[in-house]
Design a protein around this nucleic acid. Structure first.
Lengths: 345, 345
DNA sequence: GCGCCGGCCTGAAACGTGTCAAGAGTATCC
DNA sequence: GGATACTCTTGACACGTTTCAGGCCGGCGC
């Protein structure tokens, strides 16, 4: 019931008959203390159940053993996979991750950045809500390392790890064009997200490349990148007269695609016979969907792991570190949802 | 490039021409300082871009503004929804969450608990890997608040928030029995997880209640509660001669059920015609599965939110707080995967 | 004018750790 | 035997806050 008074390094020192400095050395530079002393101190630490106070350590050292991860949506498996990668890398280095969920909300993101700064985290891995680099640069100038995640840095002095979203858009679009589709809907949003815009630009590029006019690609913007928003977009698409209706839909992420699929199915529209469908991210659930979903795969876990490694490297050997923009390549995975499509015009 | 020397409360005090104590008061008890002074100090804080150092505050105060959340699997949407609830509650209270993923691994869990203790978190919300309450009780005795999550506490002096897993198992099983199934497989694991055992017990109870013998329910244990393990279990089930093969499968969670569904489909077994399927958790993807999945729904977000509130309450008004075991009720959601099942014996 | 009160502010002492210059032994070498 | 070098250990200070016992000052009642 009564919380025993926390045992400090001082209690350990007294009990072991050494000075606090020595105890500290046992903890941080065990090699410089004599084996006999070291063992005695370790025994006392064990006996007393001493646990070092990281706040004090951090206060003295200047920076802590934690880093922040700010993502757009915890409910999106894409980000949990990324988080998994981050966790693996940081766990190995004995660091803790403060996981924050901006939810695509600017104000929320800002609050979390304040909080992380107060925590004096070593650094922040972030998928920013918008291109408010200014806030992030200010952060970095104050000594908080910043690595952009799933977003390419436009500044040479800020690291980033991303996937080539334009290329991803191209892959998906080329695939649909080759299958003969000529009325294609792009579903994505909010438009503030760079990923969404880039994937759309990639799609447009594929269109031009194939010598097709712009009007073959029609844009449906969504309020959020979620399943619910996907359902909504689908009913907008189905609201058009059949002759003008798209024969294929390319979604900026898999959650949207799953939403689209649900609504199409509910309204008796067959996938892929009536409408073909391609998603983005290739989350694990894409393959398990009502109609297995074609999708553009990203190395999710690797994304997180690499970002964390970059940050740790910069933290531990700043002199050796060179800022870099790592860009991975996406890969199209074709499944039922776009396989046997025969656009019926 | 050069990180400006962090500005401290002392710099603010000097610049504003007041003492450090006053600056601290402006921050923590603004009401007791004269309006004119307060404004002057606030102006300087803004101008200098002062950000309080939480480590120092925590050192002085004894405990920090963070709490730990330890879950079994980040990749499971059930837990991200729970995390979401936790985040909502803590965000309102201005606290940060350190998110940890034990991955069902005892050693990993233990490492994370050490780390959280070093961070002097206010408390820990945890879904323990096994019933190693001993470790948690020790933690609590040292002043770290503990709330069990998705696991009922057996001790009156430890709070817990859970869902009645036995009842959930009963609901699912009754449903299958009423549909006429007499050879039912239970897929779940690892068996160390209390949730798995309780759901199984609930199923057995429903069996006895219906006056049926034990052999109508056959247990298939899995190494982990994942999609891959589900696929594996399904192929074990299909390995049996048709006459002995189950006509219905009840899975301890939806990931397993999705795996089972994938493998059944791959091997041309129809759901629900050949084999009916019921999952557990009712994650969002259950409804979007190849065959929409019947599942036992749990109030996921509410689970997290309630647990966090309990912990905050205990932290902020310990005298008023009474330890309690909150138990929510699950609810069966029937969808295609078990709807039109006619067991063909 | 005196005593008292209340509002506002100050200054210093902690909190638990890391660091570092200096000291205490002890072994080595001529 | 004394100087030198080396290995461990010590003790004090610093990190940035919060807290708290006081101090100053102007106003009030007598």
């Amino acid at each position: 019931m009564v919380a025993g008074p926390a045992v400090s390094i001082r209690d350990v020192a007294a009990q072991a008959g050494v000075s606090v400095g020595t105890v500290s050395n046992v903890l941080n530079r065990p090699d410089i203390v004599a084996a006999s002393t070291r063992n005695r101190v370790l025994a006392v630490i064990n006996e007393l159940g001493f646990v070092p106070n990281d706040a004090a350590r951090q206060l003295r050292r200047g920076r802590g053993r934690t880093l922040g991860l700010v993502v757009l949506d915890v409910a999106n498996p894409f980000f949990t996979d990324v988080a998994r990668g981050v966790e693996d890398a940081t766990g190995e280095a004995g660091m803790a991750v403060i996981f924050c969920n901006s939810d695509g909300d600017q104000a929320r993101e800002s609050r979390y950045l304040d909080l992380l700064e107060e925590q004096r985290v070593q650094g922040v891995l972030i998928t920013p809500v918008d291109d408010a680099n200014e806030r992030l640069v200010r952060l970095r100038d104050r000594g908080v390392l910043v690595v952009l995640l799933d977003r390419r840095s436009t500044r040479a002095d800020v690291c980033s790890v991303s996937v080539d979203d334009r290329l991803g858009g191209e892959l998906a679009m080329r695939h649909l064009i080759e299958a003969g589709h000529r009325r294609i809907a792009f579903v994505g949003g909010p438009w503030g997200l760079e990923q969404v815009r880039d994937r759309y630009e990639g799609a447009r590029h594929a269109l031009r490349e194939a010598g097709l006019a712009e009007e073959h690609l029609r844009r449906f913007e969504t309020a959020s990148p979620t399943v619910a928003a996907g359902r909504d977009a689908a009913s907008r698409i189905l609201g058009l007269p059949r002759s003008a209706r798209a024969t294929a839909v390319f979604c900026a992420n898999d959650l949207l695609a799953l939403g689209v699929l649900q609504e199409l199915t509910r309204q008796q529209v067959r996938v892929p016979e009536d409408i073909a469908l391609v998603g983005y991210d290739d989350i694990d659930f894409a393959a398990a969907a009502a109609v297995p979903l074609s999708s553009v795969r990203q190395p999710r876990q690797r994304l997180g792991r690499t970002a964390a490694q970059l940050l740790l490297e910069e933290a531990n050997e700043p002199e050796r570190h060179r800022h870099q923009q790592v860009v991975f390549e996406p890969e199209l995975v074709v499944r039922e949802s776009s396989r046997y499509a025969r656009p019926a015009d």
